[in-house]
């Protein structure tokens, strides 16, 4: 889903960025058997107008986010810009040891960012 960031840097409009997370990196490797990691992605980018209005091809922003961006444009001291956060997420399946050392296969909700939006 998420395209690789071309040219790096946190700039540009709000959108999903590619990110692979190894479970070792977050200390989960002791109890997660498989997979070793997963494509989690993350959200980054500006929610200034006009991006905050249309979501640049992604899901529309919350009405509240649109108002916040408009208020920011009219009176910058009154409100900062809305946040670029996940708008659509997917699950992954994880094989792990539970507290009694049973091997369990479970679907973990909301693990992968598919789309970002201004909220």
């Amino acid at each position: 889903d998420a395209e690789p960031v071309l040219g790096g840097g946190p700039g540009g409009a709000c959108r999903a960025r590619r990110l692979y997370v190894s479970f070792r990196e977050v200390g989960w490797h002791r109890w997660v058997i498989a997979p070793r990691g997963f494509l989690a992605n993350y959200c980054q980018g500006q929610c200034a107008l006009p991006v905050a209005l249309s979501g640049s091809g992604g899901p529309p922003a919350l009405n509240h986010a649109v108002l916040r961006a408009l208020m920011h444009a009219a009176a910058p001291g009154a409100a900062d810009l809305p946040c670029c956060v996940p708008a659509r997420l997917s699950p992954i399946s994880v094989l792990f040891f539970d507290n009694s050392d049973n091997v369990v296969l479970r679907q973990y909700e909301d693990m992968v960012v598919d789309e970002c939006g201004c909220r």
């Binding site: 946190p10 990110l19 990196e25 989690a40 993350y42 919350l62 996940p86 909301d110 909220r119």
Partner: peptide
């Protein structure tokens, strides 16, 4: 936090330059 937000925050803690912090949102 969602599961994703929790994992992003863990990664931010251990490798601060790889991801932004999660964001305070409705």
């Amino acid at each position: 936090p969602t599961n994703h937000a929790y994992i992003q925050s863990l990664l931010k803690r251990y490798q601060p330059h790889r991801v932004p912090s999660t964001c305070c949102a409705p």
